[in-house]
């Protein structure tokens, strides 16, 4: 009887929800159930309200990761949910071919040396290995095609400010099953070096 139930119900969504639906629902609900907000006053004590938020966050993280979501869906609807099937058809009807499943360790699959730094070329390689077109990344992450191209070719001069880069890189890493922290660290290390070099050459 105790309240939710499954991750979709937690986010008040239909199992056929798109990533955009999930993103919106999470944003709306975390605002709605803000422990200091109107809705919670007189109904929830603060610790319980925080627990509710944590559950929302967990549902969001699971459903936004394509691989985790697939596994979760399979456990939730072993025979396939009607709306899920509809969502599959929607994906399948898109012009680009369906991406191959990502291997558990994409770096190993593309033969990337273990201690080599991750950067733009890594992204390009993993992407082409898995057959994921840039358009799909752009659609899922809402990052522009131009920025994605610059990220992959490491055209630092055309990239947005560093604060945005961090978030972009994390999102892409999650999609490609790379370690987000490692990608951000390696990529921004090079980026910082480039910025410093630029400043040294043209201090004015």
């Amino acid at each position: 009887m105790s309240a939710p139930i499954n991750l979709y119900e937690e986010l008040e969504l239909d199992p056929g929800a798109t990533e955009e639906d999930i993103r919106r629902a999470f944003k709306r609900l975390s605002r709605r159930f803000d422990p200091g907000g109107l809705v919670m006053y007189g109904l929830y004590r603060t610790p319980e309200a925080l627990r509710l938020l944590a559950r929302l966050k967990e549902a969001y993280n699971t459903l936004m990761d394509p691989e985790q979501r697939r596994r979760y869906d399979r456990s939730l609807f072993p025979k396939g949910h009607p709306s899920l099937r509809r969502a599959d058809e929607r994906v399948a009807s898109r012009p680009p071919p369906a991406p191959r499943e990502l291997p558990r360790d994409p770096l190993e699959a593309i033969g990337w040396p273990e201690d080599a730094r991750l950067g733009g070329p890594t992204l390009t390689k993993v992407r082409s290995m898995a057959g994921i077109p840039l358009e799909e990344i752009a659609e899922r992450t809402k990052i522009s095609m131009f920025t994605l191209r610059c990220l992959e070719s490491e055209d630092y001069g055309d990239l947005p400010a560093k604060v945005y880069l961090r978030g972009f890189l994390k999102q892409i890493a999650r999609m490609l099953r790379l370690d987000p922290e490692r990608l951000v660290r390696d990529y921004l290390h090079e980026y910082d070096a480039w910025v410093a070099e630029k400043a040294r050459r043209k201090p004015w």
């Binding site: 009887m1 105790s2 309240a3 609900l29 709605r32 109107l38 809705v39 929830y44 509710l52």
Partner: peptide, 16 residues
């Protein structure tokens, strides 16, 4: 205007 829906959703979660 959205508050009523929020209250109902919170009530469903808290008291079913």
């Amino acid at each position: 205007r959205d508050l009523a829906a929020g209250i109902c959703s919170a009530l469903r979660r808290r008291w079913n």
